[in-house]
Amino acid sequence: MTTTLILGGTGKTGRRITRRLRAAGQPVRAASRTGGDIRFDLEDQQTWAPALDGVTAVYVMEPNGGMGVARVPGFVTEAVAAGVRRLVLLSAHGVDEADDSHPLKLAERAVRGAGVDWTILRPDWFSQNFSEAFWLRGVLDGALTLPTGDGRTPFVDAEDIAEVAAAALTEDRHSGHTYPLTGPRAISVGEAAELIGKATGRTVRHVDIEPEAFVELQIANGVPAAAARMLTGLLVEVRTGSRDSVADGVERALGRGPKPFEDYVAEAAAAGHWN
């Protein structure tokens, strides 16, 4: 039976993939810097071989979301040499249009050229950013200060991403496919805040901020300047409407539509994420 290695095994997508595969009786090894089944650090090559021992499929991700040195190509080479025969890469929306030096574009190229089965996932902004990551503090404080204006984007549920990834790791029919993953409709951050507020009884609003002011705010909060500018650029794409397209990747991969943002909000509220 295939043993699957999940990089970022304690993260938003990794822990969900791990849970699904274990529920299906699949041998899984969750790899993480801390808290996983085995210690793994993409920046520490000495941790690669122990994690890859006996593994035939790998869920691959860049821990910094492409904001750093490209480590995936070297890891892919070692993984294939160690016997891995299937790779599923977590990439991102718009990587096909990125500069050729972008770490995630280099990662995609390495996965496609590895000589084994591959699948690439390109999700848009995660719905869970409101409850588990970047924007949770803003929700709890009642103000999401983001340079997105009235722009809309089709937030995708991490549960959908994980289900697609689990299928791609275990089913042959996904080999050679690139799946753009979005929710079923594009909404603004203001609408997202309103839906969260209604579900929780909180006052939550979107406070628009000019892009340059947002960069300065991020730097003041300790974010490196390059990362602050990259993040702001992605949010400005929402502002300008260039990220409002709905994709069919979830439906193509799973035979069903993606989860609506309203369902995500109801589940996150019931789980107490915004208590």
Score class of each variant (00 low, 15 high):
D208F: 03
E132A: 08
T240D: 08
R39S: 07
D124N: 15
S242L: 13
L144P: 00
D37I: 01
W48M: 07
A227I: 13
D244E: 09
W274D: 08
V116F: 03
A110N: 01
P224Q: 14
E210V: 12
D208G: 07
D157T: 10
H174L: 05
E108V: 09
L90W: 06
A57F: 04
S127C: 14
L104H: 04
T47F: 11
I6R: 00
D117L: 13
A24P: 13
A193D: 01
V76K: 01
V55N: 04
D157P: 05
F130S: 02
A193Q: 02
E43L: 10
G8D: 03
L121F: 04
P147L: 04
E132F: 14
G35P: 03
E191Q: 12
Y264H: 06
L254H: 06
A228C: 08
S242Q: 11
L42T: 02
S32F: 04
A166M: 04
E132M: 07
A193G: 03
A226H: 08
V72E: 05
V80H: 02
G176P: 07
A23M: 12
V265H: 02
E132S: 12
A114I: 10
V139Y: 00
M1H: 10
A98Q: 09
A107S: 11
G201R: 09
A226S: 11
S32Q: 04
K259F: 10
Q218W: 13
G201D: 11
P260F: 11
A199E: 01
E108S: 15
R202M: 13
S101A: 14
R202V: 06
V139W: 01
I6W: 01
E194T: 14
V111E: 01
A49L: 10
A186R: 00
G65Y: 03
R109T: 12
R109E: 15
R86V: 03
D160A: 06
T3S: 13
H102S: 08
A199K: 01
L42Q: 04
T170I: 13
A107M: 06
K198R: 11
A213C: 11
G222D: 14
S175L: 10
W48E: 06
G176A: 08
G249I: 00
K259C: 15
D244R: 07
V116G: 00
